[in-house]
Each structure stands twice: as C-alpha cells, then as structure tokens.
Amino acid sequence: MLLHGGGVAGWMWRRQVQQFSAGFRIIVPDLPGHGRSSTDAFTTIRRTSDELAGILAALRTEQDAPVTVVGFSLGAQIAVDLVGRNPGLVDRAVIVSALAVPLALGAAAARAAGWLMPLARARWFARLQARALCLGDELFEDYLRTTRAMSGRTLQAVLRENARFAPPEGWRNAGTRAAVVVGRQEKAVMRRSARLLADTHPDATLCMVEGAGHGLPLQDPERFRAILERATAAA
C-alpha cells in the first residue's frame, strides 16, 4: 500500500507502480480530500488510518501474504499511526519524511488555510510548489488539478494534523519491521523526527539519504527503488 503526501494524490507513485507491479499486488488509495477522493474532506490522521486498516485487514483475510505500507510525508504520518495502533497488521513499513515533532505554529498555519486557497490554485504558485516537491513537467497538470479540487476544509485539516502529529504509544512496541527514510537536505525538524521514529521503534533502521530533500520518491526514483527493494526483501 502506497500512501501519498498532502496536496498530491496516488499519481505521485506512478513510477513505483511501474517498477514493482510485476512482483507485488499494489494498492494506491487517494486519501480523503485528494484526487479521486476530493469530495470526501480529510478530517484526521487517526480516522484515515482506521479506514486504511480496515482495507488491509480485509486483504489479509482474503490472502495470506506479507503486507508492506509505504508512506510519504502526510502519508508517512498515517502509516506510523496505522502501525502503532494495529499490532500485527503490517509486516513492513517504509516511513519517508514523516514529521513526528509537534510544531507550535501549526494551529496558526491551519487558521491561515482560507487565505492560502486562492494562492494555491494559481498556476504560477503551483509551479513553485511543484518544483519544491521535485515534480517533473509530466506530473504538473496532475498536481494542479489535485490542488484546485482540494477544499479549504481539507487544507485546514491537513495543516493542523500534520503540525500536531506525534507517534502513538504503540509505535514503541509494534511488531513491524520499519525503514525510516529522510533526506539529508531536509529541515532539521524532519531529520530530528526521523531519528525519533527510528530510536523509539524496536525494529527500525534509519536511512539518511545524501543530497535528497523533501520529495525523494519523485526526486530520485531509482535510488528510492533500491531503498524499497531492501525494505521489502525477506527478513
């Protein structure tokens, strides 16, 4: 299961689907408020992880195969919550660029969401954001369409939930093998979050990627492929 970040949608995993579809059954949901799910407003990380846990539980009943969850940014926070509150459900997790240290200014950022919406929907501003996420030209129209379909309520909830997220207590004793991935060029709080997640998980490894910023799956899909291959290999 591949979980995208806030403000994008399942299309961000297009390269990974191409790379791994021959050997894996891949599930790529559009999170609430994003892409094909834009009419369903995003509310909380916990509610979203509960919905995804229900999907995974049904799949485990249907076929007895190892389950791997890969999450990026907001999707990584959801993956951490899912793993921490559902012991035994996920065999392997790849947590990419998850903020895990609550930010004091998060509430203010969420309140400003209404002012940000017209700006976020402008093509020129979307170009700047797409460049920051390392989105190539082939994905820009997908990004612009996703951004313009997102409601102010979803944006506000995403900003609020992202800024106040902390790992659930169950993360400390989850029966899941985890790879915690962060770019060396990411903000200090992101690197600190990665270390916290790795240090507090009983079976986690920390992967600090040289030269990478916040957007590794899109910035360097071949290097990210190698990370996924190591993470999904048999223990």
Score class of each variant (00 low, 15 high):
10 G>M: 08
12 M>A: 10
13 W>F: 05
17 V>K: 02
17 V>L: 12
21 S>H: 14
23 G>M: 04
26 I>V: 14
27 I>Q: 00
28 V>S: 01
28 V>Q: 01
29 P>W: 09
33 G>F: 01
43 T>F: 03
44 T>R: 11
46 R>M: 03
48 T>G: 09
50 D>T: 15
57 A>I: 03
66 P>Q: 10
67 V>P: 00
68 T>M: 02
73 S>Q: 05
73 S>T: 07
76 A>L: 04
78 I>H: 08
80 V>I: 10
82 L>Y: 06
84 G>V: 02
85 R>E: 14
88 G>R: 10
88 G>Q: 11
90 V>Q: 02
92 R>W: 00
92 R>E: 06
94 V>F: 05
96 V>N: 14
98 A>R: 02
99 L>T: 09
102 P>F: 08
108 A>W: 04
111 R>M: 12
112 A>F: 12
113 A>G: 06
116 L>K: 10
128 L>N: 08
129 Q>E: 13
134 C>P: 00
135 L>R: 03
141 E>A: 12
141 E>K: 03
146 T>K: 00
164 R>Y: 03
166 A>L: 09
168 P>N: 09
168 P>K: 06
172 R>L: 04
173 N>C: 14
177 R>N: 04
179 A>D: 13
180 V>P: 01
181 V>Q: 10
181 V>I: 12
186 E>N: 11
194 A>P: 03
197 L>D: 06
198 A>F: 04
203 D>V: 09
204 A>K: 02
213 G>P: 06
215 G>F: 06
216 L>E: 05
220 D>H: 06
226 A>E: 13
228 L>C: 10
230 R>Q: 13
